[in-house]
Amino acid sequence: MRAMIPILMYHQVGLPAAKGSPYRSLTVHPADFKRQMVWMSRLGYRGLSMRDLMPYLNGQRRGKVFGITFDDGYRNVYQNALPVLRQLHFTSTNYFVARQFDGGNVWDYDIGIPHSDLMSLEEMRQWAFAGQEVGSHTLEHVHLPQISPQIANYQISQSKLELEQALGTEVTAFCYPYGDESPQIRQMVRNAGYTNATTTIRGLVRPGDDPFGLPRVTIARSTNIVRFLQKCLTRLEDKRRRD
């Protein structure tokens, strides 16, 4: 019987915004991120990008592995997480908003989340050059089910094309902004040529899960190391609910 596999979901790795800021919990302190990765390494686990993880998810390979994903392409991930990943020889996937390079999280401003810098095109290329994976998070971080099917399909397929043109290599990983998706949206992602897509549904990946609806384990600022290990390594954490 194949084991269930955790795919970790991070956003920012840096100093948190001021107390009271919305979604402050989605910024993990660099020291905590390093502690989490080091503990997984000590326990014999290898952190992998979605590209590297897929053979384990589809049963072609077996081993003590877990997925590492970052949403949105924040610059502080490049600054604070990449050195840790390189030190431990881990790979990861960062889902970039294809038309916001060197910009900010403009989709968050209306709900009071402070500005955070996103990677530049050159930083994204350096991320990939370091062995990390570039995935797509659409062109503009949109709610896919809330727009017309034609525009949703364009956001999905065109973001893949633009990222591939910027990188000079294939982009196969997708992440649904806000976790918003549907059977129709999943089919669009499949038709666009991606091989996998992650959601915000909480849980470990079970054998037989749809590769275009993969659950993840949310890691927050308040997740201490004991709780982190519980989330990653126990079946009791397989709640299968959306954030």
Score class of each variant (00 low, 15 high):
N76V: 00
R51P: 00
R46G: 08
F66A: 13
T93D: 01
L53S: 06
P114K: 03
F70I: 03
N105C: 06
R75Y: 07
D71A: 05
N80L: 02
M119R: 03
E122N: 13
S116G: 12
G104Y: 13
T91H: 06
G47E: 03
T91N: 06
Q36I: 02
A81R: 06
D108F: 11
W107I: 06
R42S: 06
V38G: 01
L53K: 05
I113M: 12
G104E: 12
S49R: 08
K64L: 13
V38S: 11
V65Q: 05
M40N: 07
D71W: 05
K64F: 08
I113S: 06
H89T: 12
L43D: 02
M54L: 15
V77Y: 01
V84Q: 03
I111Y: 13
I68V: 15
F96M: 13
R46Q: 14
M50H: 09
E122C: 10
M50L: 15
L88V: 07
R42E: 10
Y95H: 15
N58G: 00
E123F: 09
L118D: 01
Y78P: 05
M54I: 14
L48C: 11
R42I: 00
F70M: 07
V97D: 03
Q87T: 09
S92T: 11
P83N: 12
F70G: 06
S120Y: 05
L57W: 08
L88N: 10
Y45A: 11
M119F: 08
F66L: 12
E122Q: 15
A81V: 09
Y109L: 12
V77R: 05
M50A: 04
M37N: 06
L121R: 15
Y78L: 04
Q100L: 14
F66N: 07
M50D: 03
Y56I: 01
D71N: 05
F70S: 02
R42D: 01
Y78Q: 11
D52T: 06
L43V: 10
I111R: 14
N80I: 02
R61P: 00
L43C: 07
L118K: 05
V77N: 11
L121A: 15
F96I: 14
D108W: 08
M50S: 09
D108Y: 11
G104F: 14
Y45P: 00
R125M: 07
P83S: 13
Q36S: 09
M119G: 04
D71Y: 06
A98F: 06
D72R: 09
H89Y: 08
R125I: 08
G59L: 01
S92F: 00
L57H: 08
Y45F: 15
R61H: 12
N80T: 01
E123G: 12
I111G: 08
S41V: 00
Q36M: 05
N76L: 02
R86G: 14
G104W: 13
M54S: 04
Q79F: 02
S49H: 04
T91W: 04
R46V: 11
R35N: 11
D72M: 03
G103H: 09
A98C: 07
F70Q: 07
G47K: 09
F90H: 13
L88T: 12
R46M: 07
W107S: 10
S41H: 15
D52Y: 07
G44T: 08
F90D: 02
W107H: 03
P114N: 11
M37T: 07
Y78H: 13
G59K: 10
N80V: 05
R86H: 09
D110P: 03
S92H: 00
M37I: 10
